[in-house]
Design a protein around this nucleic acid. Structure first.
Lengths: 333, 333
DNA sequence: GCCTCACATTACATCGATGTAATGTGTCCC
DNA sequence: GGGACACATTACATCGATGTAATGTGAGGC
């Protein structure tokens, strides 16, 4: 049987509350007593029961992180950063996958209200108006990424500006027939809409007329679907001078397709991505992309979240994380 | 204030226990009563407090998954599968990173004993003798991957056989100067030792004499370190006919280095990996690798874990997951 | 020697859900 | 009509840690 505070107290010859005081360190405990208690804890190999503590305190020390799909490198890197930063601050992280399913996002909200979780960092995909209902008593929530409505605290990278900068960078290398892969077709994700918007803005600045045939839609932002979409596109259209993929994962799929077709990157066509995942640097050829500090995203998200736990009714805040266009071989002139 | 069973009971005009009975469905509840209770729950937007339930039941419905580094594609895919399978069975997953640090593995064990977690799936790196102490009352644990000692239930892929098969496959394409990248130098990870052993076995079968200069050590199994290690190696040694990388991540680093040096894959040198991560198929050129079903790994691990929770003293079990050598462009003749 | 004051420690209640054992409410049968 | 029996429901205790308020213990001052 597991030892409890009671057992420790009995062995140390003190009351349970004193044991608790030793652990928490808020109420002062005299030296000798503390020593006795600590020895008893060690002897019994005492581990506090966090369910009981959570029940009593109303806090569990666990936050949830909800991502669309952990297997994608982008999500994985974000998860890595969040887990790392959270651990440094004494939090545990429970991971949930939403699979782009709004129902899961609802489910998570109620899970977060079940007191096993003190807060939620949510990277929504379809969300927008769906899950985060206004008026319902929400747990502390921080959103990651682009969301059209302002529903909760949020950490993001300015997709419009970044996509614009990337398109301008492609333009500077002299390429004019710049395609985008992953654009929003009808109601797409917020990120797709915004990145498309930045792309359009850049075209205007570059004096390049809008050409709808350079918009390559792609429903899922994975290498598989990107590869299929690009392949189908190339079957029916001339090769663009550049392809701006809305994520690095898609760019990796694109590079693979281009290579298989004997098209040389960057000589025949330039390729750019977004996110700067770890493998971008090791793509063949190394991938030009929009880079930002994922650890910073994680630490800002956690900061907003913990501050929100303190002050449930404070004003909503939005943190924009800096980005940078990193030009590598895949777009060299 | 959050509603509790008491509030629901009052509104429904029944006792708290009846509310509990409705939720759990073990004790029968008459139709009308059940209806009243359900309506009261809906009206109050009742969400059960899982800390309290966990305290009472001794189970939290949460398992922990500990991986060396979530950001690596391999870990990410495993995490994805575990989270997915666990969710299907009603479990939540708390993720921890060990960063190859045995201290973290200890910490996890005690965390798992703190009742916030019902069990632990651990992918150890250095572990071996370190963390899982015999004789200490352990929580239910399932180990993933290669471990030299038999300490707990385990799910693995037979690294010796797989490495042997891969090496034989490389030999069949006529290549004889087969290097390995990531081999164990001194006390390496269990996987490194076993894969090296399989490689050696294959060489003997192929009648290729052992050549120590073809062993390229690499302390961390990341693209970065692999790229650096291979680069340094190529500065000082002739180009091998094939490079068997002990993980796909390393292979991706290797492909990048080879491409930068103008060495053509597979014409000048073949490259093979291990794990069949999602990007292997989209590498340039597509990567030959050892493939296995990660979802199967996850479901077997979860099965062993839940069965272990039922029967803490049952015999230890080991599940070997099938693998397959998938030959892609990077090793074609 | 007595009273005060500070401080460490204790007894008890509490967090919310649920198992146990007892109570209540019917139905069925002789 | 009365007794037995099934079944739904209830009162109470419990899981383990901790806040509250009260108690105990000592030192220090007159």
């Amino acid at each position: 049987m597991r030892a409890t505070v009671k057992d420790v107290a009995r062995l140390a010859g003190v009351s349970p509350k004193t044991v608790s005081n030793v652990m928490n360190g808020i109420v002062p405990v005299s030296g000798p007593t503390r020593f006795k208690v600590e020895q008893a804890m060690a002897e019994l190999d005492y581990v506090p029961n966090l369910s009981a503590r959570g029940l009593r305190n109303g806090r569990s020390g666990v936050i949830a992180l909800a991502l669309p799909d952990l297997a994608t490198p982008y999500s994985a890197e974000i998860a890595h950063s969040v887990v790392e930063v959270a651990h440094e601050q004494g939090w545990s992280v429970q991971i949930e996958e939403t699979g782009s399913d709004p129902a899961r996002e609802y489910e998570l909200m109620s899970r977060a209200r079940s007191n096993l979780i003190d807060g939620l960092i949510l990277n929504p995909v379809v969300l927008d108006e769906s899950a985060v209902k206004v008026g319902v008593s929400l747990p502390p929530v921080v959103l990651l990424g682009e969301v059209s409505q302002q529903l909760a605290d949020r950490v993001w990278v300015d997709s419009v500006a970044a996509a614009r900068d990337m398109t301008l960078a492609l333009g500077r290398t002299g390429r004019r027939r710049i395609a985008v892969l992953g654009a929003a077709e009808g109601r797409g994700s917020a990120a797709a809409v915004l990145r498309t918007r930045g792309y359009q803005a850049a075209l205007r600045e570059l004096g390049i007329p809008w050409d709808g045939s350079l918009i390559i839609p792609c429903e899922k932002w994975s290498p598989d679907t990107a590869a299929r979409a690009l392949s189908a596109y190339l079957d029916a259209n001339p090769v663009p001078e550049a392809i701006f993929c809305f994520t690095d994962s898609m760019a990796i799929g694109a590079l693979s397709v281009l290579w298989k077709r004997g098209l040389r990157v960057p000589d025949d066509v330039a390729v750019a991505g977004f996110d700067d995942i770890a493998d971008a640097k090791y793509a063949v050829p190394s991938l030009t992309t929009v880079s930002f500090d994922k650890r910073r995203v994680a630490s800002e998200a956690l900061r907003l979240l913990t501050e929100r736990m303190q002050d449930r009714d404070g004003p909503q805040r939005v943190i924009a994380v800096d980005y940078e266009v990193v030009e590598r071989t895949s777009t060299s002139a």
